[in-house]
Amino acid sequence: MGPVVATEFTPWLSLLGGVLIGLSAVMVMGMFGKIAGIAGITKGLTSAVPGLATTGDRSWRLSFLLGLVVAPLAVLLATGSFPQQTVPTSLAGMALAGLLVGFGTAFGSGCTSGHGVCGLARLSPRSAAAVAVFVAAAVLTTTIVRHVL
């Protein structure tokens, strides 16, 4: 999928970023009474496709996604450069990855935020099971791609 780049262990920044994510989830629960699951929020967008059930509360979901999209632009404005990232270069691989992530999160009713952050915070055994399965599947996939293939 592309070259392996070593990354620096950043416990404090990661913890700080995690707290921000948690605060956003609390905002969504406190204001709208909803789970801040990005897969679920994204479904609010795709529900525009004819034949699919529409989820209510379309407006705040679209605004939330817009906020997500604007975040790196805010970083650009504040620091003068985009946040650093290294994205896998295989386009066929990224197309397959996107399909699987979209299909899997919609079929399994949640992603890293919905089942991960929000589900674990609710102490939901259903979400804990989903997290265990998707982390195990992801570890296995990365290991096979990097060390076996």
């Binding site: 691989g93 397959l96 990855a97 899997g104 079929f107 890293t112 998707f134 599947a137 791609v145």
Partner: peptide, 13 residues
């Protein structure tokens, strides 16, 4: 099933 499929995609990209 969904979680497993999602995990494969996450581990890939």
């Amino acid at each position: 099933t969904g979680a497993a499929i999602f995990g494969v995609g996450w581990g890939l990209g």
